[in-house]
Design a binder for these strands. Structure first.
Lengths: 236, 236
DNA sequence: CAGTTATGTGACATTCACGTGACACCTTGC
DNA sequence: GCAAGGTGTCACGTGAATGTCACATAACTG
């Protein structure tokens, strides 16, 4: 794997320096920006893999940049970790609501930061793939946002599509409701865990409409959550 | 999720007491050791989820224990947070090099310690993956939460799964009912000891359904408890 | 061998987790 | 403005999982 590019956005040179050191030790390539303008330029010019974004910045706070990134299609998927000196709960909540993938409060252990970065990068890379996913006769077309079963289109809502997408990218593994909320809905929302059940049901229903056998792909793991298991699919 | 076990290693009783209080308020179960010897015994006996390790200890400094833990396969993944009164950069670097997951300098706010612990534990639990335990034809798949025996899935309840998981992680060793309750059910529950017998039976039954030979893996140690013994498995 | 203690086992009540239909709210498009 | 579909939440029903008991059986004791 080639070295990942990390953009550090912070107005304090000492912090940038510290991060640069920590990052380069861990084989990341490091870009630096002291303000929002420079940050935005580097993002479009250099397309980094992840952004470490300080909360307080001259010329507009970090959250403004975050908002802007999440609004534009091209940068929507770009992972962002917020760095904040404040411990106010508010900031965290606000940051996550706008779409930060994680936050970390200063002072932090570099090792922890690196660990979280890796986790997020791993997650991001595991979910990007070809333009379609396939299990037996079931085909999920990512670009056209359609699901085909034996040449026939299945009808389902956006949430069910995302859910199926996630499951097909991570087969044979049980996920808790909390994990699914985190990965499918996003870390920034608060919904009841039982809501997952309802969407699982809707997804099963949609699959069943195509072929009853395929509804069994989604198994419930009692006491834990759900699992997508192509392994147990009866061979046609 | 059941309460995590924290091992506090410090020679000063007052500090241990303080930490115990802070930890128990946050729903951790607390083990204490005053020296390296005791610490090592508790680690092998009780397998805590994380260790808080003082730098200066009688009978060998904390870093020696750390080195030992990181050298041995069984304890390599065990997260360790170093506690140190010294502020010398040296210590920090040395500690992290040997493999401490974080460090914190005295005096520290209990709240911060707890926060860092949680962060590390969260990371640890999300990174365990691709793992499975195997004994002969018996395979316990951790992340798919399934048990396979000769390619066939075994049916069992969550408790039996946890029980088997524990046994397969700690083979060839007899555990009392009290210990099993503690490790499998969790610390703060009150159930009759005989309940263990019933679940042992259910687990044996599940194994037997797959292959009668495998039920003998779980042996009763009269007057003591039970033991999981792959050693005695008849080779097919 | 009888007496005593420890473990195996089936049955049962209760609790708990999950499936499911209904519904109110919010978008979105016309 | 309204209609249509998507979404989150709730209430209810059902079946699985759990803990406990009573009794059977096996293992030690003297």
């Amino acid at each position: 794997m080639s070295a990942k590019k990390v953009l550090v956005v912070d107005d304090e040179a000492s912090i940038r320096e510290m991060l640069r050191l920590a990052l380069e030790i861990s084989d990341f390539k490091c870009l630096e920006a002291a303000d929002i303008h420079e940050a935005y330029r580097l993002i479009t010019d250099e397309s980094p893999d992840i952004v470490l974004l300080d909360w307080m910045l001259p010329g507009g706070s970090g959250i403004e940049l975050l908002r802007r990134l999440k609004k534009e299609e091209a940068t929507q998927a770009l992972p962002v970790i917020m760095l904040t000196a404040k411990t106010h709960e508010d900031n965290v909540v606000q940051g996550l609501e706008v779409g930060a993938d994680d936050y970390i409060t200063k002072p932090f252990a570099p090792k922890e930061l690196i660990a979280r970065m890796k986790a997020i990068l791993r997650r991001a890379s595991s979910e990007e793939g070809g333009s379609e996913l396939r299990v037996g006769e079931l085909v999920l077309e990512i670009d056209s946002r359609r699901v085909m079963l034996s040449q026939k289109a299945l009808e389902m809502g956006p949430t069910e599509f995302k859910l199926l997408h996630f499951f097909m990218s991570h087969p044979e593994r049980a996920y808790s409701r909390a994990q699914l909320l985190d990965r499918v809905w996003g870390a920034n929302v608060y919904v009841e865990e039982r809501t997952v059940d309802v969407h699982i049901r809707r997804l099963r229903k949609a699959l069943q409409a195509g072929d009853p056998v395929y509804a069994d792909l989604i198994q419930t793991v009692r006491g834990t959550g759900y699992r997508f298991s192509p392994r147990d699919l009866a061979v046609v």
